[in-house]
């Protein structure tokens, strides 16, 4: 085994561990479900379009059905009215699934410390990646996504 876990058996055939292979496959074929509510949606649009380009990370195609998606990106403020809907969408997704809290409103509630806003979606769904910012710049989103990819790679076959 070479140091990055790959062994070339013969030209065109690589051998590696199952965990590494599955992690590699999962991290480069993310199907995001962009649960977009508010202003962070603007930066999500900017990140997925041509200039900052989410496509080169393999996360190009948003899947608008939770049954078909594996990355739930919660983009924008979650109010108490929409919180049960978010929980239901999370429950409908099949494992392995990851949740990204995009924007500080989803991380901690942002500066909306009032009667209407959920103070952090980690009180409702388990979160894998927090991207703070109001809204986060696309560079921050891409960095966060790369950190998530490293996490997915390290999780291996059994997922969470």
């Amino acid at each position: 085994m070479t140091e990055n876990g790959l062994l070339e058996l013969m030209p065109g055939v690589l051998a590696t561990r199952v965990d590494d292979a599955v992690g590699w496959a999962r991290k480069y074929s993310l199907f995001p479900y962009p649960f977009v509510t508010a202003c962070c949606g603007m930066e999500y649009m900017s990140t997925s379009c041509s200039h900052y380009d989410l496509d080169r990370f393999g996360a190009a195609f948003p899947r608008f059905s939770p049954r078909q998606a594996d990355l739930l990106m919660v983009v924008g403020t979650i109010s108490h009215k929409i919180a049960p809907v978010l929980r239901r969408i999370y429950d409908q997704m099949a494992s392995p699934k990851w949740v990204v809290a995009f924007g500080v409103c989803t991380c901690t509630g942002g500066f909306y410390d009032n009667y209407a806003t959920v103070q952090g979606i980690d009180t409702i769904v388990p979160v894998d990646l927090y991207i703070p910012g109001c809204p986060p710049r696309p560079e921050a989103v891409l960095q966060g996504l790369m950190m998530l990819q490293a996490k997915i790679q390290s999780q291996g076959l059994e997922g969470r």
Binding site: T37, A38, T77, S79, N114
Partner: peptide
């Protein structure tokens, strides 16, 4: 009302 964030109260 799914994005009511209480601007006026805030």
């Amino acid at each position: 009302g799914y994005l009511h964030r209480g601007f006026e109260k805030q």
